[in-house]
Design a protein around this nucleic acid. Sequence first.
DNA 1: CATTTCCGTAAGTCATGGCTTACTAATAGC
DNA 2: GCTATTAGTAAGCCATGACTTACGGAAATG
Lengths: 112, 112
Amino acid sequence: MTYGNAFIALADPTRRSVFERLRGGPRAVGDIAEGLPVSRPAVSQHLKVLKEARLVTAYRDGTRQFYAIDTHGLNALRAYLDSFWGGALGAFKTYAERGAPKARARRKGSRR
Amino acid sequence: MTYGNAFIALADPTRRSVFERLRGGPRAVGDIAEGLPVSRPAVSQHLKVLKEARLVTAYRDGTRQFYAIDTHGLNALRAYLDSFWGGALGAFKTYAERGAPKARARRKGSRR
DNA sequence: CATTTCCGTAAGTCATGGCTTACTAATAGC
DNA sequence: GCTATTAGTAAGCCATGACTTACGGAAATG
């Protein structure tokens, strides 16, 4: 159920911004916070949530804490999402091909 | 920013349960609600959120509303997650190989 | 038309969580 | 040892949202 925490972590826009700032590589907390519309402690709290969701890892360099993207969380999310492509899509496609996007004729064979 | 709503939608455990019940194919609202620990109106509200996030679609059959998985939201999420494998991992690997205690060298060649 | 199903909406309650401003802790340099 | 940087923690405030019950509306059935 690790993907549960990952979804929660990425649901918040500010926290996603924090996460996205790590795309270019590891960065220190103060560096991440700079330019964001929230305080540094807020960023620390967000990083904690991201870390517990295994979306980031941390290491220390002197007085600075560097955070980097952790693939564990990303992999968990991908695996979860992929689980919907197997059985679901077979059944979904059946419906989709039958007349999907807007409000095409209903049909739905099993009329009773 | 459609993935934003998708993350929010899947962040709630109950809503994820609702979503997962669609794995086997389209189901009616009452059918989905049955067995869940919340009321049927609650399920309706969750389905509304999922629909706005383009994670489900709906169609009507008589008095019943059927909901099915929509790939739009899933694709948006996938694309977002994949965007972290490009630049981020290159830089991340630099760190990981530098001395991450447990992390074996990733290799990961062609995943994208 | 009246009734029955099935579902969405309204309104209100209550817990969660994101933010702020302190304050505390750990490392580096003088 | 003292001071400066850098970050995490504590406490409290307030908006958001997940849930409930009650109600309203559309389609089938008699």
